[in-house]
Amino acid sequence: MRYLILLIVTCCALAASAQKKPMPHGMVYGNKPDTSNIVPANRVEAFMDKKVRISSTVRGKVIRVTKPKGGWFEVDAGNGKIIAAHFRDYNVTTPVELKGKIVLIEGVAQKQFEASGKAKTGIKIDPKRRLTFEVKGLMVEK
């Protein structure tokens, strides 16, 4: 009887310690982002002005992790717009728990344009996904 109780207590203790812990502030994936010049996600497009590509550090809220392997996720850019982000290094795996967290991402932002005229591909880019971001480093802020 003692061994049964000891076994149950041990199993409960192991199960409690195996619970997922919240992601701590400052957790880094890839390279640590440069925090000297940060652009809010809702201002990236205005910050780019007429440029097609820029290198910058962006602060934004992760909407969802679309593919953990390779670090594919979406960041809220305000006004219903989304920044589709992915890591430059495919070996980086982002956890699904990143959803809802405020993050700093450093890398290259790029505008995507709709195919016009008689394009052979006929691919249309969703207007909500006009910006992509190739991430070099990500840091969890909140």
Rank of each mutant, 00 (worst) to 15 (best):
P127E: 02
K128Q: 04
R43N: 10
R2Y: 07
M48V: 13
K136C: 05
E97V: 05
L138Q: 01
L104M: 06
T94D: 09
T57F: 08
G117F: 13
A16P: 11
L7Y: 03
A15I: 08
T35Q: 14
D76E: 08
C11L: 15
Y3T: 09
K67Y: 01
L7P: 06
A41E: 02
G80H: 05
V96Q: 13
Q112F: 01
T10G: 14
C11H: 07
A15C: 11
R53L: 15
D126W: 14
V92W: 07
A46V: 09
V62W: 01
L4S: 06
A15R: 03
T10K: 13
R2C: 08
L104I: 10
R88T: 03
E74Y: 13
E45N: 12
V135Y: 00
M139K: 09
V52H: 11
M139D: 01
R43E: 12
P33K: 04
Q110W: 05
Y3R: 09
V92M: 12
W72N: 03
C12V: 07
V103R: 00
T57N: 08
K142G: 13
R129W: 00
V44P: 06
V9P: 15
A109K: 04
T93P: 08
G78K: 01
R43V: 04
S116A: 13
D49E: 15
K21D: 10
E106A: 10
L98P: 01
Q112Y: 00
A119M: 05
G80V: 03
I82W: 00
E97F: 06
E97N: 01
I38R: 04
T66N: 01
T132D: 14
K81F: 01
T35L: 15
Q110Y: 01
K124M: 14
T93F: 05
E106K: 08
A84R: 10
G26E: 12
G122P: 08
F47P: 12
P95W: 09
M27S: 13
W72G: 01
P95M: 06
F133P: 14
V75Y: 02
F73L: 02
A13H: 07
G107I: 13
N37W: 10
V39A: 14
H25I: 09
P127S: 10
A46S: 09
V39S: 03
V9F: 05
A41Q: 04
N31P: 08
V135E: 06
Q110D: 10
F133W: 00
V108A: 15
N79M: 15
L14V: 05
V39M: 02
G122A: 02
R130A: 11
A109D: 05
G80Y: 02
L98T: 06
V108H: 11
E45F: 12
R88L: 15
L98E: 07
G100I: 06
P127Y: 06
I38M: 03
L14G: 02
V39Q: 11
V140F: 04
E134T: 11
